[in-house]
Design a protein around this nucleic acid. Sequence first.
DNA 1: CGCAAAAATGTAAACGTTTACATTTTGAAA
DNA 2: TTTCAAAATGTAAACGTTTACATTTTTGCG
Lengths: 375, 375
Amino acid sequence: MPIRPTARKTRSRTRTAAATIHDVAKRAGVSVATVSRVLNGKELVREETSRSVRAAAESLRYVPNVAARSLSIRRSQTIGIVLPDVHGEFFSEVIRGIDLAARAEGYHILVSGSHSDPVQMLEVVDTMRGRVDGLVVMAPDVTLAPLEELRARDMPVVLLNSSGPNRDAITIDNYGGARAMMRHLHGLGHTRIAFVRGPQHNADARERLRGYRHAMRGMAAASLRALECSGDFTEESGFAAGRRVAVAAPRPTAVFAANDSMAVGVLASFAAAGIKVPEVMSVVGFDDIPIARYVAPPLTTMRVDIAEVGRRAFALLLDAITDPNAHVTRHDRVGTALVVRGSCMAPQPVTELSTQPHRAARGRKSGSPNKGEAS
Amino acid sequence: MPIRPTARKTRSRTRTAAATIHDVAKRAGVSVATVSRVLNGKELVREETSRSVRAAAESLRYVPNVAARSLSIRRSQTIGIVLPDVHGEFFSEVIRGIDLAARAEGYHILVSGSHSDPVQMLEVVDTMRGRVDGLVVMAPDVTLAPLEELRARDMPVVLLNSSGPNRDAITIDNYGGARAMMRHLHGLGHTRIAFVRGPQHNADARERLRGYRHAMRGMAAASLRALECSGDFTEESGFAAGRRVAVAAPRPTAVFAANDSMAVGVLASFAAAGIKVPEVMSVVGFDDIPIARYVAPPLTTMRVDIAEVGRRAFALLLDAITDPNAHVTRHDRVGTALVVRGSCMAPQPVTELSTQPHRAARGRKSGSPNKGEAS
DNA sequence: CGCAAAAATGTAAACGTTTACATTTTGAAA
DNA sequence: TTTCAAAATGTAAACGTTTACATTTTTGCG
């Protein structure tokens, strides 16, 4: 019972409907196939034809309909970025890095942030399906990783700041960076070094902690655990940790915060308590966020090139997208660099400090290891 | 000459091809139209039919192809965000605000950042055409606005931190905020107030400057211009400005930086020069970025709810998208709130300060206006 | 039960590309 | 001039939805 409906009412178009490839073809006096060929520039077309098609497209202000294109070629030239509920510098730098790399390759980026729980994250991944050719998923919270694994099948995925077995991933060399920082402090003479931890389930935080612990094992210091304070990467938690460190006995001579934000909090807390940095206590962080050099004293920290993390993630994803078969899964680590500023110095003899603070203060000028910056 | 090609070779599909609406229809024993109706839930469908369709979709793990859907309904359920080359907090908070609001309405966001020049920005707008239903364009640099106007035709656009005649826009109440801050300083007794300007072509910076100047005109202070320093919103430029203010004669009693980042730079410079804040010099900023409360001393500033700016921008855009005809263009301003912290106090008599710094320092405890925070 | 109106469902034409294959044109060799 | 391969171009079938309109089924009522 096939029916033959009468001429269908064409969908009403308000004023200037966008020109389609058919309009261009008509104006140039060629077929749509030729227009497509000219505009995509892959196949053979006579120079003259090409010119007239281009002229027609120009005059009609033709812009290809991407939905139709995606439907036809089964590609969207878009990648998705799924982020947890991260604020600040880190967040934006990652996007920046990916965006730059993606635009250079003609890709667009679809962003979805603020996912505190895994379920929500998976929902988003589902709604992105078909809309993107691949996914960069940032899930530093290790508990998310396994869940994420279940879905997102047959779609290239690159993990950021987390990793999984047989998964493409880009992470920061947190462990190596933490050890390098400890080496720096140790070289200055510190052995009682406190650590302010990051969120318990955060992969970056865990690795930094691991680096710290490994280094501490090599030193003579006892009661390792007693020198660790909990924290959650916020300035506020750093502030609280600073208070706890200040009353610890015997007091550490240096504090290593798992990120700069917490280090800033520690500095603020020490400033409020009248504890001089770096004379009485050295403080170091991790990340090298922009304000790090503008706090007082300027913060010694491990620099992480976050935009680079984004760039690499895109490169890896692109490889997985363009040739899924030839692609071999990789796990890359982005290196870190020590940036020495004014927030640490060699530990001063306790007696001298407690009785003659001014001499210790003067000692800073002569004894400080940081003339300029070294990275 | 119509041709009748032989059966066309079906496009090779590797392994598990995604299920289409046809597969679902077949499995449920209904037509594709019914499946569409069930899944989009608008029209009448028998409960029983609905259930079986849903079951079929579920079992086939059917996910609609968005490209096909967009093509058919001529909507992408996606909005584009075009940002200049902004780093940091501001950038990410705007996206956060928009993302949250957009997701609640089932919209996705396509982001493109890092556009330093207008031409590049326009290119991006072009490539987004067809991919998005509307655009949020952040172009605080006033010189960009007119250029932007040329294109982006017949596509809803909401401007952020800039405005144009007859254009939808969301801006911050920079002028009002700056005046309120000046009122606060004046109330404390300051009359010689220096200002650190932002980028010359930045709309926010201009408005803040306008607010400052207007307030200064109301005071007795002479040589207005002499108290203005140039800056570009970076910590570095704030640092440089701090130096210049420090050697100005007669020295101002307060510094108002056009944003917090520069205020942090000013603080760092004063700390390096041994100028006590707030005893000798009060310092205030604008924005209330997260570290503002963690610098020493905690910074008095005007809070701006950036995520709110994003939310409002989306709401406005959505209105323009859903009913272009009924929509009336608006220009909304988001308010600011004074946050008083420890970085200012009443100006101290000059003689006393220069000869007896310690008394002035003590004066901080009793004379400081900031017990806790007020907003 | 008969009938009409209402409800449910089906059919196939868009949406705007890309591209396999067919056809026509070109140009060089015979 | 003819011939034929190569180059250029055209034709129309996908791609996977939505939806106007047609058709069938159900329901309510006399």
